[in-house]
Nucleic acid binder design. Structure first.
Lengths: 226, 226
DNA sequence: GACCGTACGCTTACGGCGTAAGATTGTCAA
DNA sequence: TTGACAATCTTACGCCGTAAGCGTACGGTC
């Protein structure tokens, strides 16, 4: 009869699923940041009402946890062959890139959440690669924390400036003009260094600290203190 | 007459002020975290209605910015005398301690805010100390980022675990029991290392990475590459 | 075909949030 | 006493997360 048997809203035929909800959440947060991710808006994105999401996600915390897991799963695991430093460097840069792609993820690190499978897998892979490179259990433990701290810390530092620069390209110049140059001479110099055009072959700031740590670790390993 | 000239609600005689608002905000966030800091609750704490706060604070973002500035002002500036590594070590540890005292501050690093005077002063002091230790402008710039990344990154990593451990002391044991040991052997080992009692003379995880960076920097400076 | 449990989506409602707009009050100079 | 002005309070709006309960469509059993 007039009841639609076939043609009623064909796109809404795709049933909701946890995976679809998480993906839509990631997409929404990528575009507008975490503050634009509300249950209502996410539901709207999916052509659904807010409360329907709760059939696939325990609550908002669970949603965010799932999204963070998704992010971790995008990190490239360290290659088990070749130079350990090259492998770790690659993974660290991949992690950094992932965080730049999903900037909201950084603010989720702080809130305690249930264990995320992808995160545990990432950790085990990194720890394993360090062990196979000849580090003791103790040194591996320290090395892991040093590396992860740098990745997360550096990215966290970078993000606000990216946000500023995005909405106002001459942000640095403006900042310099307002800066009391005589009171804060070294900061003034620092900003100038930041404004220099990239020199060819210059490793970025991120890689600098990364290599510093990697070299230090290798030296400690070779010194054999253990 | 019967109107109270002197004795009416003596504690509410203290007028509100930006400083009092910020301090109360810090106190509230220290106790209950950022999520317990609402304008209404903060006002209640001060014996006042929410909207009154807006005479001393532009909006909530401004309040948080002021609180963060307060936090930065607690960091011990590097001593300009003696070994530069000792000075920077001291400042880094002080920064770390401050962040442990005001754990909510870490989640504010991400959101772009107007420049905070105390933060600029902190940066200038650190940069100046590095310059006076003989680093070039370029190296100083890199050194600063390496150090700050470690401080912030490491603390950010630590905080969720402190939160877990606080509300459940045997958290690590429980976690180990649920861990699929055969699938994640290195992570299992890692957790075991974490559970070892502190050995005497063992520098903590934070200091390990810190010293790694400081030594690496000194070596680069002495190599004179520049 | 009749029946029914289950899964999924919808509706309504509650208390809390940040804050815009305007009314009220306390303080002090003239 | 009066008037100004700033500090505070009141009210209201549109968001938020989510508890509770309702309607419906489907898959398996007789």
């Amino acid at each position: 009869m007039s009841t639609q048997t076939d043609q009623a809203a064909p796109e809404s035929r795709i049933p909701l699923s946890r995976d679809r909800v998480l993906r839509a959440g990631v997409e929404l947060a990528d575009e507008g940041g975490l503050e634009s991710l509300s249950m209502r808006r996410l539901a709207q994105q999916l052509g659904v009402e807010a409360m329907s999401l709760y059939h696939h996600v325990r609550n908002k915390q669970d949603l965010l946890g799932g999204m963070l897991d998704f992010v971790y799963s995008e990190i490239q695991a360290p290659s088990s062959e070749g130079d350990w430093r090259a492998a770790m460097r690659c993974t660290a840069i991949s992690f950094h890139d992932v965080l730049l792609r999903h900037q909201w993820a950084c603010s989720l690190f702080m809130s305690p959440m249930g264990p995320s499978p992808a995160r545990l897998r990432y950790m085990d892979a990194v720890l394993g690669r360090l062990r196979s490179a000849g580090f003791s259990a103790d040194m591996t433990h320290h090395a892991y924390h040093a590396l992860d701290s740098h990745i997360v810390g550096f990215t966290l530092w970078l993000l606000p400036f990216l946000a500023f620069a995005k909405q106002q390209p001459d942000y640095a110049e403006r900042f310099l003009q307002e800066l009391p140059t005589d009171e804060l001479p070294h900061l003034t110099e620092h900003v100038h260094v930041h404004m220099e055009p990239e020199r060819p072959g210059d490793v970025g700031e991120f890689e600098f600290g990364l290599d510093l740590i990697l070299e230090g670790l290798e030296r400690m390993r070779d010194a054999g203190s253990n």
